[in-house]
Design a protein around this nucleic acid. Structure first.
Ligand SMILES: [Zn+2]
Ligand SMILES: [Zn+2]
Length: 254
DNA sequence: GCTCAAGGCCAG
DNA sequence: CTGGCCTTGAGC
């Protein structure tokens, strides 16, 4: 058995089971013991902070993006609208965009009917002062985590809250797979240890953790890490992996 | 059947 | 040690 989390281990790391299935608004509560008892009967639960999601209009999503603005619900935990493309899910915008191990969760993009890369239903929004688009990452607004970790995706919470704006579009898998690795800038190959990274950073992180490697920086512990020089200082590379949020347990250890 | 991520393998 | 590719098994 090569997957240690597959059986007994999943009890130690319950988020693996919890996060690997979609939770619709009408589903059974994800965690009835932690769900607020005052939650509306039809509500969902924000998968990150476990706060009940209020359904403003009695249902989660509309039949299209435009309509869904009216029908969307907000997560009471973060006050963000639910992800419009994840209409079969009750996860809040944070949960949809965060890098938690919701590995098998999928959603369809309304515009292209393509599968959206799980856990990175990034929203692209018109910049208020520029014609170009900026990527926003509502996880940055989540107080339980260091916003600095996601500096490159960071946005103000107010900006995140308006991501149902008419100009908003959802980045599909096709677009997201060209995103650079947050560690080294190489091409990402998927989600690894809670972060969308390239194959080499995945392997590097795996080896480091598995073999309990200890690296020493021969400089000032602030070596640049990019595709061309990532081999030079494993210490700083690993520090960057950790700083960006790579976790051996996938991300959240609820 | 599919996708996905964890972990294994191995040439360089 | 690195990183590309492969196998595996869970969830869907
Ligand atoms: Zn990388
Ligand atoms: Zn260094």
């Amino acid at each position: 058995m090569r997957r240690p989390e597959s059986s007994a281990d999943s009890r130690d790391r319950p988020y693996l089971r919890r996060c690997r299935r979609r939770t619709g608004a009408d589903d059974a509560p994800v965690s009835s013991d932690r769900r607020p008892s005052s939650a509306p009967r039809s509500s969902g639960v924000c998968r990150i902070d476990r706060i009940a999601v209020a359904l403003d209009k009695g249902r989660v999503f509309g039949s299209n993006v435009a309509a869904s603005a009216d029908l969307a619900s907000r997560c009471q935990g973060c006050a963000l609208f639910l992800q419009p493309c994840a209409r079969s899910s009750s996860r809040c915008a944070i949960a949809s965009n965060c890098q938690s191990p919701l590995s098998q969760t999928r959603a369809k993009c309304d515009h292209r009917n393509q599968t959206v890369l799980p856990n990175l239903l990034a929203v692209r929004q018109s910049a208020p002062h520029a014609s170009q688009m900026v990527d926003i990452h509502p996880m940055a607004a989540h107080t339980a985590l260091s916003a600095a970790k996601y500096a490159e995706h960071a946005i103000a919470a107010s900006s995140a809250a308006s991501f149902m704006a008419p100009q908003s579009t959802v980045l599909c898998k096709q677009q997201l797979e060209h995103e650079p690795c947050p560690i080294c800038g190489d091409k990402v190959s998927g989600y690894h240890y809670g972060l969308l990274t390239c194959e080499s950073c995945k392997g590097f992180f795996k080896r480091t953790v598995q073999n309990k490697k200890q690296y020493q920086c021969s400089a000032d512990q602030n070596c640049p890490v990019d595709k061309t020089c990532r081999k030079r200082c494993p210490h700083c590379r690993f520090q960057k992996c950790m700083g960006k949020g790579m976790r051996i347990e996938g991300r959240f250890a609820f």
